[in-house]
Design a protein around this nucleic acid. Structure first.
Lengths: 138, 138
DNA sequence: ACAAATTTGGTACTTTAGTATGAGCCTGTA
DNA sequence: TACAGGCTCATACTAAAGTACCAAATTTGT
């Protein structure tokens, strides 16, 4: 936030300076008009890049949108998805069963269904596929 | 690549057009000089943002620097790391053995050593930890 | 060349994972 | 209310995964 304000302030100041500069070049009427315009273009080009980099950095890292539509498309139920999340955390079936207060048999059933729905042969493969499909945060 | 070239071509063309435009405003000597400069600034500002977005998108996703120092620190050997990469791809021990042209026993040994070095109880946990430690691309 | 580390592989087990099948319980809805 | 879908759980397997221990062949650094 602070940086954005600072950058915009700098942007406005630069704009004002360039206005002054343009007046001089206008009075001296030679190729410096083209030069001025060129430098303005280059400066604002890089200003754009800089600002974009600032904003993207703060958004891209925590921003890993989960494709809820995809989850629905694959027919993965709420509970199955919960299990999938726990699998990706590296938990065993027994551990997942304990955290969700159900039996290990239940988890096995969920896992088995998940593997079919994700077209995976192993839980590790399920993790990889789920991340590729953007249904799990990478 | 193609898009970058296309964008840069458009940029050059825009630059040329603005040069023509600036000549007119210079002849009619009024506030249109400021207007022209303003529009140039705005246009190139957004061009900068656009190009940055293009390049960042293609670099940021596969760009996840691997901490080679960490791998060394953990005492993970070259071959063990290879196995780790294959594990994260969702391959079974047998499949890894086949792709690396060694026996399944060998892979089991490597995996066992990896689990100790990564302080993991399961291969899924090893994947998670390895990604957290930045020794595997997320 | 020698020691140290790495890689390879085997046997013998134990533990997880995963499959197949069947069944009871709830809940939203036609 | 009947029925589908989702959640639960069990049994009985089969298949992987992982452990422990040992040992030989290779590679690497000094």
């Amino acid at each position: 936030m602070k940086k954005t304000i600072l950058v915009f302030s700098a942007l406005i100041i630069a704009l004002l300076i360039l206005f002054r500069l343009s007046r001089y070049s206008y009075l001296s009427n030679d190729i410096s008009v083209e030069l001025t315009i060129g430098s303005i273009a280059v400066i604002f080009f890089f200003v754009g890049i800089y600002i974009n980099k600032r904003t993207l950095h703060k958004e891209k890292l925590p921003h890993t949108q989960i494709d809820h539509k995809k989850i629905e498309q694959l027919g993965i139920s709420k509970r199955e998805y919960e299990v999938l999340v726990h699998i990706s955390k590296g938990l065993s079936n027994k551990e997942i069963a304990d955290t969700l207060f159900v039996s290990e048999s239940t988890i096995k059933t969920h896992v088995s269904n998940l593997l079919v729905k994700l077209d995976a042969q192993r839980r590790t493969q399920a993790i990889k596929k789920a991340k590729e499909l953007r249904i799990l945060a990478i």
